[in-house]
Amino acid sequence: MFAVATVAVVAAMALVLVRAIKGPTLYDRVLAVNSFGTKTVLLLGLVGFLTGRPDFLDIALLYALLNFVATIAILKFFRYQALAPVMTGVDREEDRHD
């Protein structure tokens, strides 16, 4: 059962990779990276159970946290064009491009 799930997750990773390569928009790619991180977390959990050593599940949890932080950082970068801006809450008009 774990083997079937692993195959499914790897196939999903391939599909997400196709989306990240083809794009076409920026948000497709950001979302592709985010869901690829999620697939990585799932794959780590499955590999742990497949090899009979689910001791590394906490590592998978840490990956999930890292993935979240990285996505937030990327999106914040788009919004403010910098990593450490003053966040006044004022929306610059030229930043709106959606």
């Binding site: 794009g23 690829f36 794959l43 590394f56 990956y63």
Partner: peptide, 30 residues
Amino acid sequence: GVAMLSGIYSLLSAAFFVVLDAVDVAFTEA
């Protein structure tokens, strides 16, 4: 797109390192 793909590349190699039992290397990579 290259920057996003390099993020995916890092995640993939981190998963690969975990499969090879190099968990600490994988964590640094991620």
